[in-house]
Structure formats: C-alpha cells, structure tokens
Amino acid sequence: MLVVVTATINPLFLTPQGVKDLLLNATIVVILAIGQALVIITRNVDLSVGSILGLVAFGTGTLFAVYPGIPIILVFVIGMAFGAVLGAVNGLLVTIAKVPALVITLGTLYIYRGVNNAWAGGTQYFAGDRPRAFSSLSTDTIFGFPLITLLAIAVVVGVAIVLAYTRAGRDLYAIGSDPAAARLFGIPVTRRVLGAFVASGVLAGLAAVLYASRFNAVGATTGTGLELDVVAAAVVGGVAIFGGSGTVVGAAIGALLLTTITSALTALRVDKFWQQAIVGVLIIAAISVDRLVSLNRARKLRVSEARNV
C-alpha cells in the first residue's frame, strides 16, 4: 500500500536504483531485527545491539587498516565471533544475575559504546582504507539483487527454519510464553536464553561487517541509537514484547517497512524530521494492538467458559 502510494506520487521511488537503495538500506536493520526477535521471543530485550554494531564495525575497519591483505571471509568470521562474545556477556549477566535484560543491556549499551570511544578516539576509517572487493560486496548484484540483500534473505530463511523446525527454536517460544512452566518442564531455560543473546550478538557482528562494507566511515559513534529502530522493527513486525510469539520473517518485514517509510517520506519530500516521531508512533501502536487483541481474547474466554451460570 505504502509502496504503491509513494510510487504514484514520486515515480523515482520504484526505479531499479530506488528499489536497490531501499533494499540496501534495509539489509542491516533486517539482520539486527532478526537477532532482536530471537531475544524478545524469550521475553527479554537487547538494547546493546547499536553499540555492538559500532564496536565490531570499528574493529572491522581496524583489521583492514592493520592487516591490509586479510582475507575477507576471515574478517566476517572474526566480526561475528567478536559479536558473539559481546552477546555472551549480555546473556551471562542476564541469566546469572537474574536481573531484567533491559537494565543489563542498557548498561552494556553504555559500556560497549564507551569501549568503542576509548578505542577509536577521534580515529575514523574510510572506505578507501578497505579493499575494493570488500566495498563492492554491497554494490555487486546477482540478477539485479544486491549481494548483501541476498545474504540477508539467506539469514532470514536460516533463522526462520531454526525457530520453526528445531526443538531448541521451539523452546524459545515456550520460555517466552511461560518461563516458570518452561523451567518446570525441564527446558534448559538458562542455556536457551544465553543462546538467544549470543545469536543476537553474532547477527549484530555480521551486520557490522556489512555496515563497514556499505558505508564510507566507521568510527566512535557508528550505530548510535540504532537499537530503537531495531526494537521498533521487531515489534512492528508482530513480535510480542511480552515474549512467546512472533516470527523472524515478521521482524524482517517490520524492518523493511520502517526503512520503506523512511525512504518514502524522503521521496515524498515530507520533512525528514518526522521520521523518528513515526518510529515512536509505530512502537506504541504495535503494542497497543497486541494488548487489545489479548484483552479481547481473555474476555471472550471468560464468557465462553460461562457454563449456564
């Protein structure tokens, strides 16, 4: 709908170049939103993804600067491993200290960003410091699709299969649905929640390497404030903030939708300043709808259970 409206008003929006830009811009948020969805489904949240992305992206820039000949695939591996470590720190603090994930990841948001600042200082790495092959990852296309968008689709499909068709994936839903019952059931709650945080870290690491490929500069403030867009994408995509339901496909569509709105607003020449306000409205609308649906369900349940009283 949105796409149609925008395309009619601004024909430039649906040109191949326009679509390509849209997909490229969405890719990074899509990958982050998938990780966030995994965490939110277990009734937790990871606010530190923006900082993880910043830290790993700067790390990527550093790697290329220090070891100019490093194989690109190795950079991906290192970036994801780095993300995994940062995610594991979140997961361990949440599961061992039994403190709400919100508080822990709010803290690590600060800490990771601070580490990034301390490490980077005023340094910034630019695309020129990186091999051409690496930068072209985000411009090359296969059958008209950008390479990294295909990568993002592969990630969506992979994670979707894990969530829908493995016991570990289903456990995440059970945990988010009723943590106490899950524990009573013998589901390894601690291990699964830790896993979700590590996965979110890995995906943030992947997104960070792609970020370094797509954007010119990486420095101390890369990825600042991104966590809001990511949480919004997941929630708008139908991942219930109370845990227990939602899909990564939904989260990916949510991310795409948010990016589309942003691009559409630009294309429609709506003041760019409205973008953040719209993100806020979307979050609140999404959780309100969620709540109203479940309230309605509860009321129907009570009346339908009414025997002949």
Binding site: Y165, T166, D171, F185, G244, S245
Partner: peptide, 26 residues
C-alpha cells in the same frame, strides 16, 4: 493445567520431544 498459551495444541503435547523428520528438523 499448565499449557504454553502461545504454542499450538499439538506442540504443547510434544514440546521438547517433537517428532523429527528429514535433516533432523521437526
């Protein structure tokens, strides 16, 4: 009863021991 409200009925019966088919997938 302690069912997981967000899971399907079938899944509630088989949670943690879902039948697996090709490739070890449920």
């Amino acid at each position: 009863p302690t069912l997981f409200p967000d899971l399907t009925v079938a899944e509630n019966i088989y949670i943690g021991r879902q039948p697996r088919g090709r490739g070890g997938l449920i």
